[in-house]
Design a protein around this nucleic acid. Structure first.
Length: 489
DNA sequence: ATGTAC
């Protein structure tokens, strides 16, 4: 090993295993080593905050297997890094709400169209205004559906099946969503009344922060055969929807963090950070949290479904054609913040694990039984949004992901500065004017401050993140898109 | 991310 192959950041040591793979050797109370998957350039950004320390802390979680892993877009989060993957034994390990994240099933879906960029040019302002007027966004309440108690119960229990029953989905949408849009382990009774109350008037709403709806054009195709299977080609218009489970998921996370801290104090005392609070596998709270989290997963899927279906109606008005004629079909919906029971090979043995992916995307290659039939022979689509001034990517689950990352890859570009700092560096209106005048990107937002917080300059280079994923073989580049219209909170 | 704190 040469000097170039070792990095010492304070008391944290990283050893290069090979290109883009850095290992933090096991020491002290660490149960497993940790790994950072990053280029030198991205590692230099990752080391700037508490990401590496949080990654090391995560290796202390009971039942952690193989490695705690940090993706190329990793940054500091609540307890567990955003861009982190940790797989714990589902019988002898634990489940940790902070390792899922507050925004349960924050994620993205991509809807295709058969429109070309040429057909949209000149209509950008009309389209962005119509989307903004019809898709609720911003903090607080107001959704596409004003839900009552029964509606929320149905959504939590049946996910996108509920949307289908109520005319907000078609069968084909279910066939192109993970779990067909319905987590079978959902337990609505484990979701507090307070969480349900917060969620009932947020069904079909974008929220705030980095959440958005973006109309994009496909600018590059890297793997022609896979793109063709996915139904993507250059110049095509697609729609990307990025949002989560709103106040409901947030409430589920905080409810269970509080309960688990109280009930499992011994386990908490054995961890280096209280924010990693975890319930032992098999305990009542582990089961309840898992059921509640799965219900929140359903809520987020329905949220994205309602927004997508409303978007079809908006396109119908703007383009004067039926959405079916515009072939506005769902490509796929991917979760960025969940824990899920999955079987993976560990030391030559198949074991059931809680795979925590926080700011990480499942990236299963061809052949995994969980994949819908449309993608079983090609591998699942992985959708990685960039900032509103940069491209986004469609990848395909890579052959090496099962071996390296429990079937996962990155989820986005990742911030480089805090929201507070961003507001000091940028002014929302100026950002909007520049995007429009220099790149023909039309942004409309509830708040100028949000635009400043999400300015393209506050994000890492998504091209570099995707390059690492592709070169590692965990997620293969298929296509790149570029923004046309963007609405946000 | 989030009725931006308990």
């Amino acid at each position: 090993m040469t000097d170039d192959d070792v990095k010492q950041f304070g008391d944290i040591r990283l050893e290069r295993v090979r290109e883009h793979v850095w290992e933090m050797p096991r020491e002290g109370e660490m149960r497993v080593p940790a790994r950072v998957l990053a280029s030198e350039q991205l590692l230099e950004q990752i080391r700037q905050d508490k990401t590496l320390e949080q990654l090391r802390n995560a290796t202390h979680l009971p039942g952690m297997t193989k490695h705690a892993i940090c993706m190329p877009d990793g940054h500091q989060g609540y307890g567990f890094p955003v861009g982190g993957v940790g797989a714990t034994d589902a019988e002898e390990g634990c489940i940790s709400p902070g390792s899922v994240g507050y925004d349960i099933n924050c994620g993205v879906r991509m809807m295709k169209t058969n429109l070309t960029y040429a057909e949209l040019e000149g209509k950008e302002e009309e389209l962005v205004d119509a989307l903004f007027a019809n898709v609720p966004s911003g903090l607080g309440g107001g959704g596409i559906v004003q839900g009552d108690v029964d509606a929320v119960e149905g959504v939590l229990d049946r996910g996108v099946d509920w949307a289908l029953e109520h005319g907000h989905a078609v069968e084909d949408d279910l066939a192109h969503c993970e779990d067909e849009g319905r987590r079978p382990d959902a337990d609505p009774d484990a979701v507090s009344q307070k969480a349900k109350d917060r969620g009932k008037n947020q069904l079909g709403s974008l929220g705030s922060g980095n959440h958005f709806l973006e109309v994009q054009r496909v600018t590059d195709v890297f793997r022609e055969d896979v793109a063709s299977e996915f139904g993507l080609e250059e110049d095509q218009i697609v729609v990307l929807i990025h949002c989560g489970s709103r106040g409901l998921g947030h409430q589920v996370c905080s409810d269970y963090l509080r309960k688990i801290e109280k009930e499992h104090g011994d386990l908490l005392d054995s961890l280096p950070d209280k924010e990693l609070a975890a319930a032992p596998a098999g305990s009542e709270l582990a089961e309840e949290y898992y059921g509640a989290m799965c219900a929140a997963i359903n809520f987020a899927w329905v949220n994205r479904q309602l927004i997508m279906h409303r978007t079809r109606r908006v396109f119908e008005r703007v383009f004067g054609r039926d959405w079916e004629a515009m072939e506005m079909d769902l490509l796929y919906d991917v979760a960025h913040n969940i824990a899920k029971k999955e079987v993976h090979e560990v030391d030559g043995e198949d074991r059931e694990l809680y795979v925590h992916r926080k700011g990480a995307t499942r990236a299963f290659p061809a052949g995994r039984p969980e994949l819908p039939s449309a993608y079983r022979d090609v591998g699942q689509p992985v959708i990685i949004p960039g900032s509103m001034g940069a491209g986004s990517y469609v990848l395909r689950g890579g052959e090496r992901s099962l071996d390296l990352t429990f079937g996962s890859t990155a989820h986005g570009a990742g911030r480089t500065m805090s929201r507070t700092q961003a507001k000091q560096e940028y002014w929302g209106e100026t950002v909007q004017d520049e995007l429009r005048d220099q790149q023909k990107i039309y942004v409309k937002a509830q708040s100028g401050a949000t635009v400043a917080e999400e300015a393209p300059g506050v994000y890492k280079d998504v091209d570099e993140v995707v390059r690492v994923s592709d070169e590692l073989g965990i997620g293969d580049k298929v296509a790149r898109t570029f923004p046309v219209c963007n609405i946000k909170g």
